[in-house]
Amino acid sequence: MIYIIRNQHEYGPYEASDIARYVEEGRLLLNDRARDAESDVEGTVEELLAARGIRPRVRNRGSLMEQLRYIGHAFIFPKDDMERHHIMEDKRLLILAIVGLSLSIIMLLPIGGYLVFYAVSLYFATIWGLFFAYFFRTRQISKSKAVSTFFLTQLGVFVIFSGLNELNFFYAFTSAPFPLSILGYILGIGLTEEFAKMIPLLVLERRAREPQLPQTMVFYGLMAGIAFGVFEGVQYQTSINIRADYTTAFVLNIARLTSLPFLHAVWAGICGYFVGMAGLYPQYRKSLYVLALAIPATLHGLYDLFAGSFYLVSLVIAFLSVFLLMAYLRRSNALRERLRG
Results as ranks from 00 to 15, higher is better:
Met65Asp: 09
Leu329Ala: 00
Tyr114Ala: 08
Phe178Val: 07
Ser309Asn: 15
Pro177Glu: 11
Asp304Arg: 13
Arg256Met: 14
Leu315Phe: 13
Glu193Cys: 09
Trp267Val: 11
Ala125Val: 13
Ile186His: 06
Ile2Asp: 09
Thr174Ile: 12
Leu187Glu: 01
Ile95Leu: 13
Gly341Glu: 06
Pro13His: 10
Ile240Tyr: 12
Gln215Asp: 14
Tyr311Ile: 13
Glu232Ile: 05
Gly12Met: 14
Leu204Trp: 06
Ala16Ile: 14
Ala292Leu: 07
Gly184Arg: 04
Gln67Arg: 13
Pro296Gln: 06
Asn60His: 02
Gly184Leu: 01
Pro282Leu: 05
Tyr14Pro: 13
Pro282Lys: 03
Met198Val: 01
Glu205Met: 14
Asp81Asn: 14
Gln283Pro: 01
Ala208Trp: 03
Val234Met: 02
Leu167Arg: 00
Ala294Glu: 05
Thr216Ser: 13
Leu320Cys: 02
Trp128Ala: 15
Gly53Val: 03
Val41Ser: 08
Tyr114Ile: 15
Ile270Phe: 05
Leu152Met: 13
Lys286Gly: 07
Phe250Met: 14
Ile141Pro: 06
Asn253Tyr: 03
Thr247Asp: 11
Leu101Glu: 10
Ser332Lys: 10
Ala50Ile: 01
Gly12Phe: 11
Thr247Leu: 12
Arg330Gln: 04
Leu320Ala: 15
Arg59Ser: 00
Ser142His: 06
Leu339Asp: 02
Ser39Leu: 04
Leu167Glu: 00
Ile242Asn: 01
Glu42Trp: 02
Ile106Cys: 08
Pro179Cys: 11
Leu122Glu: 15
Leu152Thr: 10
Ile71Ser: 01
Leu257His: 14
Phe178Cys: 05
Leu122Ala: 15
Lys197Val: 01
Leu320Ile: 03
Thr216Asn: 08
Leu155His: 00
Asp304Thr: 12
Met326Ser: 05
Leu339Arg: 05
Ala265Lys: 04
Pro282Glu: 05
Gly233His: 07
Leu299Met: 13
Ser121Arg: 12
Leu167Tyr: 05
Asn7His: 09
Ser162Phe: 09
Ile295Thr: 12
Met217Phe: 06
Gln215His: 09
Gly233Pro: 06
Arg59Pro: 00
Met277Trp: 02
Tyr3Asp: 00
Phe306His: 13
His300Ile: 12
Pro179Lys: 10
Thr44Trp: 11
Ala172Met: 00
Gly233Ala: 08
Glu66Pro: 07
Arg69Ala: 08
Ile98Glu: 06
Tyr281Thr: 06
Leu315Ser: 14
Val23Tyr: 05
Leu28Asn: 12
Glu205Lys: 15
Pro211Ile: 10
Ile105Phe: 09
Ile54Trp: 01
Ile141Phe: 04
Ile87Trp: 01
Trp267Gln: 06
Ser39Phe: 03
Leu48Glu: 02
Val203Gly: 06
Ala97Asp: 03
Asp80Phe: 05
His86Phe: 02
Ser309Gln: 15
Met217Gly: 08
His85Cys: 00
Val230Asn: 07
Gln237Tyr: 03
Leu101Phe: 07
Tyr246Asn: 03
Glu205Ser: 15
Ala297Gln: 04
Leu213Arg: 13
Gly341Asn: 10
Leu64Asn: 02
Phe169Ser: 00
Phe219Thr: 01
Asn241Trp: 06
Ala265Met: 09
Ala268Ile: 12
Leu260Phe: 14
Leu305Arg: 15
Val316Tyr: 07
Thr138Trp: 08
Tyr22Ile: 01
Phe250Asp: 04
Phe161Gly: 00
Gly279Glu: 07
Leu164Pro: 00
Leu122Ser: 12
Lys145Cys: 02
